[in-house]
Computed example of a mutant assay.
Amino acid sequence: MAGNTDSKESLASRFRKDAPAPKQPAPAPKQVRQARLRLVQIEPWSVMKAAFLLSVAIAIVTVVAVAIIWGVLGAAGLWDSINSIIQDSIGDNKGTPFDIEKYLGTSRVLGFTMIVAVADVVLITAISTLGAFLYNLAATLVGGVEVTFAEDK
């Protein structure tokens, strides 16, 4: 029984307020997981589809932006100012007044913008697809692009 009282005393000393707390092991530093991947091929068909959709979106934004800007310039009275400046510089008050909108009308400007937008769609799609083919060729020769991803904690 003597051994039993010793264990009770040591147990009681563990829970005393003045007794030092047992030491906890220091937490290990967090390991950040990393993955090293190599991009060796880009599928040209998926590049072509994505480039086509993005270029169509850019074309729509371009046409809408030109229409809005053209409308704001017309509402601000720019065309009337240009007409009066040209009429004053020509100095001909007898004939028909000069009208800039005969040469730069809304329909002409939007038509030209749509032609440029369609050409941009075709060019951006073709150049992006060609870029995918060229990347695949270069990746075959040099092994591709190596990327390291790390997990945030």
Rank of each mutant, 00 (worst) to 15 (best):
V64N: 00
A12D: 09
M114H: 03
Q41W: 14
K49Y: 08
V56E: 14
V121F: 00
K153D: 12
Q24P: 00
F15E: 08
R14L: 10
K8V: 11
W79R: 10
P44Q: 06
K94Y: 06
E151G: 10
F52Y: 06
V118I: 13
L37P: 10
L39H: 00
Q87A: 15
G71H: 12
Y103A: 05
A75S: 15
P22W: 07
G77E: 01
P20Q: 07
F98S: 01
A138N: 04
N4C: 03
R16G: 13
G77F: 01
V142H: 11
M1L: 14
F52G: 05
A67V: 00
A50L: 15
M1T: 14
S55Q: 05
L11E: 08
V47G: 03
N83V: 04
R14F: 07
K49G: 12
N93I: 14
A28N: 11
I58A: 15
L141Y: 09
R38W: 01
V72R: 01
S13Y: 15
A12L: 12
A119G: 15
V61G: 10
E146A: 14
E146F: 01
T148H: 00
Q24W: 00
P22L: 10
L123Q: 12
G77P: 02
T148R: 06
D18P: 08
M114P: 04
I115R: 03
A119L: 15
L137D: 08
L78E: 06
D92T: 01
L39S: 02
A2H: 08
L137R: 15
A76C: 01
R38V: 13
G143Y: 12
T140D: 02
